[in-house]
Protein backbone atom coordinates (compact mmCIF):
# COMPACT_ATOMS: atom_id res chain seq x y z
CA UNK A 1 0.00 0.00 0.00
CA UNK A 2 2.71 2.40 1.05
CA UNK A 3 4.99 1.39 -1.77
CA UNK A 4 2.22 1.63 -4.31
CA UNK A 5 1.34 5.06 -3.03
CA UNK A 6 4.92 6.18 -3.35
CA UNK A 7 5.15 4.82 -6.89
CA UNK A 8 2.01 6.63 -7.95
CA UNK A 9 3.22 9.88 -6.44
CA UNK A 10 6.56 9.42 -8.15
CA UNK A 11 4.74 8.75 -11.41
CA UNK A 12 2.83 12.00 -11.17
CA UNK A 13 6.05 13.85 -10.46
CA UNK A 14 7.75 12.31 -13.49
CA UNK A 15 4.76 13.10 -15.70
CA UNK A 16 4.77 16.75 -14.64
CA UNK A 17 8.51 16.94 -15.22
CA UNK A 18 8.09 15.44 -18.68
CA UNK A 19 5.36 17.97 -19.38
CA UNK A 20 7.56 20.85 -18.23
CA UNK A 21 10.36 19.57 -20.47
CA UNK A 22 8.06 19.27 -23.50
CA UNK A 23 6.52 22.71 -22.98
CA UNK A 24 9.82 24.56 -22.62
CA UNK A 25 11.33 22.67 -25.56
CA UNK A 26 8.35 23.44 -27.81
CA UNK A 27 8.47 27.07 -26.73
CA UNK A 28 12.19 27.30 -27.56
CA UNK A 29 11.74 25.61 -30.95
CA UNK A 30 8.75 27.76 -31.83
CA UNK A 31 10.75 30.88 -31.04
CA UNK A 32 13.87 29.55 -32.76
CA UNK A 33 12.22 28.94 -36.12
CA UNK A 34 10.33 32.20 -35.97
CA UNK A 35 11.36 34.40 -38.86
CA UNK A 36 9.38 36.49 -41.28
CA UNK A 37 10.48 38.55 -44.25
CA UNK A 38 8.23 41.15 -45.76
CA UNK A 39 8.57 43.57 -48.61
CA UNK A 40 7.94 46.95 -47.07
CA UNK A 41 7.48 50.12 -49.12
CA UNK A 42 9.70 52.89 -47.78
CA UNK A 43 9.19 56.46 -48.85
CA UNK A 44 12.50 58.24 -48.92
CA UNK A 45 11.68 61.27 -51.02
CA UNK A 46 8.05 62.22 -51.36
CA UNK A 47 8.29 63.01 -55.06
CA UNK A 48 9.68 59.57 -55.96
CA UNK A 49 7.69 56.31 -55.85
CA UNK A 50 8.28 54.32 -52.64
CA UNK A 51 11.21 51.96 -52.48
CA UNK A 52 10.34 48.32 -51.85
CA UNK A 53 12.77 46.84 -49.35
CA UNK A 54 12.65 43.33 -47.87
CA UNK A 55 12.65 43.56 -44.08
CA UNK A 56 13.15 40.54 -41.84
CA UNK A 57 11.88 40.04 -38.31
CA UNK A 58 13.96 37.62 -36.25
CA UNK A 59 13.89 36.64 -32.62
CA UNK A 60 17.59 37.50 -32.22
CA UNK A 61 16.84 41.18 -32.81
CA UNK A 62 15.04 41.63 -29.50
CA UNK A 63 17.01 41.08 -26.31
CA UNK A 64 13.83 40.06 -24.49
CA UNK A 65 13.29 37.22 -26.96
CA UNK A 66 16.90 36.15 -26.59
CA UNK A 67 16.36 36.05 -22.83
CA UNK A 68 13.22 33.95 -23.28
CA UNK A 69 15.14 31.58 -25.54
CA UNK A 70 17.95 31.17 -23.00
CA UNK A 71 15.44 30.69 -20.16
CA UNK A 72 13.61 28.02 -22.13
CA UNK A 73 16.81 26.17 -23.02
CA UNK A 74 18.02 26.23 -19.41
CA UNK A 75 14.63 25.08 -18.12
CA UNK A 76 14.32 22.22 -20.58
CA UNK A 77 17.86 20.99 -19.93
CA UNK A 78 17.21 21.22 -16.21
CA UNK A 79 13.94 19.29 -16.68
CA UNK A 80 15.80 16.44 -18.41
CA UNK A 81 18.50 16.41 -15.74
CA UNK A 82 16.02 16.40 -12.86
CA UNK A 83 13.94 13.78 -14.65
CA UNK A 84 16.93 11.48 -14.84
CA UNK A 85 17.95 12.21 -11.26
CA UNK A 86 14.51 11.60 -9.80
CA UNK A 87 14.11 8.51 -11.97
CA UNK A 88 17.28 6.96 -10.62
CA UNK A 89 16.36 7.70 -6.99
CA UNK A 90 12.68 6.90 -6.69
CA UNK A 91 13.24 5.58 -3.18
CA UNK A 92 13.60 9.06 -1.75
CA UNK A 93 17.05 10.50 -1.42
CA UNK A 94 16.43 13.38 0.93
CA UNK A 95 19.24 15.71 -0.10
CA UNK A 96 18.43 15.19 -3.74
CA UNK A 97 14.80 15.96 -3.10
CA UNK A 98 15.75 19.29 -1.52
CA UNK A 99 18.14 20.07 -4.38
CA UNK A 100 15.40 19.38 -6.91
CA UNK A 101 13.04 21.63 -5.01
CA UNK A 102 15.62 24.41 -5.12
CA UNK A 103 16.02 23.93 -8.86
CA UNK A 104 12.28 23.84 -9.48
CA UNK A 105 11.66 27.11 -7.68
CA UNK A 106 14.50 28.75 -9.61
CA UNK A 107 12.96 27.56 -12.86
CA UNK A 108 9.64 29.13 -11.85
CA UNK A 109 11.38 32.49 -11.46
CA UNK A 110 13.39 32.08 -14.66
CA UNK A 111 10.48 31.07 -16.89
CA UNK A 112 8.08 33.66 -15.53
CA UNK A 113 10.56 36.50 -15.86
CA UNK A 114 11.48 35.40 -19.39
CA UNK A 115 7.92 35.11 -20.59
CA UNK A 116 7.05 38.37 -18.81
CA UNK A 117 9.82 40.25 -20.59
CA UNK A 118 8.81 38.86 -23.97
CA UNK A 119 5.14 39.49 -23.34
CA UNK A 120 5.87 43.13 -22.52
CA UNK A 121 7.91 43.61 -25.70
CA UNK A 122 5.25 41.74 -27.67
CA UNK A 123 2.56 44.04 -26.30
CA UNK A 124 4.51 47.12 -27.35
CA UNK A 125 5.03 45.56 -30.79
CA UNK A 126 1.32 44.77 -31.03
CA UNK A 127 -0.11 48.05 -29.80
CA UNK A 128 2.69 50.51 -30.25
CA UNK A 129 3.09 53.30 -27.74
CA UNK A 130 2.30 56.83 -28.80
CA UNK A 131 3.70 58.38 -25.61
CA UNK A 132 7.23 57.24 -26.28
CA UNK A 133 6.83 57.08 -30.06
CA UNK A 134 7.38 53.38 -30.45
CA UNK A 135 5.61 52.23 -33.59
CA UNK A 136 3.70 48.99 -33.69
CA UNK A 137 5.31 46.25 -35.70
CA UNK A 138 2.77 43.44 -35.62
CA UNK A 139 0.57 44.93 -38.31
CA UNK A 140 3.44 44.18 -40.70
CA UNK A 141 4.85 41.01 -39.15
CA UNK A 142 1.59 39.31 -38.21
CA UNK A 143 2.64 35.68 -38.24
CA UNK A 144 5.92 36.49 -36.50
CA UNK A 145 4.03 38.09 -33.64
CA UNK A 146 1.54 35.21 -33.44
CA UNK A 147 4.37 32.72 -33.07
CA UNK A 148 6.05 34.80 -30.38
CA UNK A 149 2.75 35.01 -28.51
CA UNK A 150 2.35 31.22 -28.71
CA UNK A 151 5.91 30.73 -27.52
CA UNK A 152 5.37 33.07 -24.56
CA UNK A 153 2.15 31.30 -23.60
CA UNK A 154 3.72 27.85 -23.80
CA UNK A 155 6.72 28.92 -21.76
CA UNK A 156 4.37 30.36 -19.14
CA UNK A 157 2.60 26.99 -18.99
CA UNK A 158 6.02 25.42 -18.49
CA UNK A 159 6.49 27.78 -15.54
CA UNK A 160 3.12 26.66 -14.16
CA UNK A 161 4.23 23.01 -14.48
CA UNK A 162 7.31 23.78 -12.38
CA UNK A 163 5.08 25.59 -9.89
CA UNK A 164 2.93 22.47 -9.57
CA UNK A 165 6.08 20.42 -9.02
CA UNK A 166 6.99 22.74 -6.16
CA UNK A 167 3.52 22.34 -4.65
CA UNK A 168 3.88 18.63 -5.08
CA UNK A 169 7.14 18.30 -3.21
CA UNK A 170 5.73 20.56 -0.49
CA UNK A 171 2.73 18.26 -0.08
CA UNK A 172 4.94 15.20 -0.02
CA UNK A 173 7.23 16.63 2.65
CA UNK A 174 4.26 17.80 4.68
CA UNK A 175 2.71 14.35 4.65
CA UNK A 176 5.94 12.78 5.79
CA UNK A 177 6.73 15.32 8.48
CA UNK A 178 3.28 15.18 10.10
CA UNK A 179 3.12 11.42 10.20
CA UNK A 180 4.28 11.15 13.81
CA UNK A 181 1.30 12.91 15.32
Amino acid sequence: MEGENKARRGGCDLLLRLLAFALTLVSAILLGVDKQTKIVPIQIVSSLPPLHVPVTAKWQYQSAFVYLMVANIIASSYAVLSLLLSFTSMGGNNILELAIFVGDSLMVALLFSGSGASAAIGLVAYEGNSRVQWQKVCNVFGSFCAKVAASVLISMLGGVAFMLLVLYSGLRLHKRSSRTK
Binding site: S63, S113, G116, V124
Partner: peptide, 22 residues
Amino acid sequence: DVLVLGLVASATGTAGGVAYVG
Protein backbone atom coordinates in the same frame (compact mmCIF):
# COMPACT_ATOMS: atom_id res chain seq x y z
CA ASP B 1 5.73 31.99 -1.70
CA VAL B 2 6.42 30.32 -5.01
CA LEU B 3 3.19 31.66 -6.47
CA VAL B 4 4.09 35.20 -5.41
CA LEU B 5 7.61 34.54 -6.67
CA GLY B 6 6.11 33.82 -10.09
CA LEU B 7 4.19 37.08 -9.90
CA VAL B 8 7.16 39.21 -8.81
CA ALA B 9 9.54 37.51 -11.26
CA SER B 10 7.18 38.07 -14.17
CA ALA B 11 6.67 41.69 -13.13
CA THR B 12 10.42 42.22 -12.91
CA GLY B 13 10.86 40.59 -16.30
CA THR B 14 8.07 42.65 -17.83
CA ALA B 15 9.30 45.99 -16.55
CA GLY B 16 12.91 44.98 -17.19
CA GLY B 17 12.20 44.04 -20.80
CA VAL B 18 10.61 47.39 -21.53
CA ALA B 19 13.21 49.32 -19.53
CA TYR B 20 15.99 47.64 -21.48
CA VAL B 21 14.49 48.80 -24.76
CA GLY B 22 14.07 52.27 -23.27
